[in-house]
Amino acid sequence: MLEVKNLVAGYGTIPVLRDVSLTAKAGEILLIGGENGAGKSTLMRAIAGFNKPDSGEILLDGKPIGGTAPEKVAQSGLRLVLDGHRVFPELSVFDNLRMGAAARRGDRAGFNNAVEEIYSVFPILKEKQKLYARDLSGGQQQMLALGQAFIAQPKVLLCDEPSMGLAQALLPPILAFLRRWAQTGTAVVIVEQHLAVTAPYADRAMIIERGQVKFSCLASDLDEKLNAPAHAAE
C-alpha cells in the first residue's frame, strides 16, 4: 500500500533521514520507534509531502507521490495526523470533523456514518460537539484529530506520536481504536516513544536511529530485540 524506498530527506540544508525504506500493508499497524531527534517526525512529514525528499521514492498504491504537495497527498488517500494533537482551535468539534471531509472520496451519507462511528467510539466528542476545539483537553484533541482523519477514510494513516502531551492512561483506548481501524483494511503507521504500551497493538515494528533504520521486526519480537544489545553508556 505504502512503500518508501531509500528515502533521503531533511529540512533545508539539514539532512535528517539517510536511506530509509519501509512498507506499510493494508490491515496492518507498523510501529516506528526511536529516540528523540532520530528523525521519526521528519520521516512522517517527508512521506506526507511537507518536506521534499532529496532522493528516494515514495509509492502509494504503486504511484509515486514524492515531492507532491501535502494537500494533494492527503486527497490521494494518505493522511498524516501531526504530533501535538493539532486541531483547529477556533472551530467547533463538529466543524473540525467536517474539515476531514476535504480529503474524502465519498458521499454525504458516508460522512454522516463516519461521524456517527467516531461519536460512538469517543462519546465525549459527541457530548462536546458544539464547543470550540481549544476547550478540549489534550487527549480529547487527539481523539478529534484522529476522528478528523477517520472521516477522510484514507488508504494509509500516519500517526505521529499520538501520546505526546497526553496522560499515559489515555493511550490504550486510542490505540485500540487504531487497531480496529486497521482491521477495516487501512494501512496504519504509528510513531511512538512509548513502545511497551504500543507494541501489543502493532503487527510490525521498526526502530530508527540517527536517521537510519536500525532494525525491523515483528512487533511481538520487539522487546527481545531491544534488550539484546547492552546499554552502551554503562
Binding site: 506526507a48 509531502g49 511537507f50 504537495a69 501535502p70 494537500e71 497527498v73 492527503a74 486527497q75 493522511r79 498524516l80 495526523v81 501531526l82 493539532r86 486541531v87 483547529f88 482551535p89 477556533e90 472551530l91 466543524d95 467536517r98 474539515m99 476531514g100 471531509a101 476535504a102 480529503a103 478528523q148 482523519a149 477522510a152
Partner: peptide, 26 residues
C-alpha cells in the same frame, strides 16, 4: 463559521500545516 469553504479558510489561518495535512485545497 457556517459554510464549508469559509470554515476551511478559517482553518487555514488557524493552523496552516494541519490544514494541508487534512487535504484542504490550499
Amino acid at each position: 463559521r457556517k459554510t464549508f469553504i469559509g470554515l476551511a479558510i478559517s482553518a487555514l489561518s488557524q493552523d496552516f500545516d494541519a490544514a494541508r495535512a487534512a487535504g484542504l485545497p490550499v
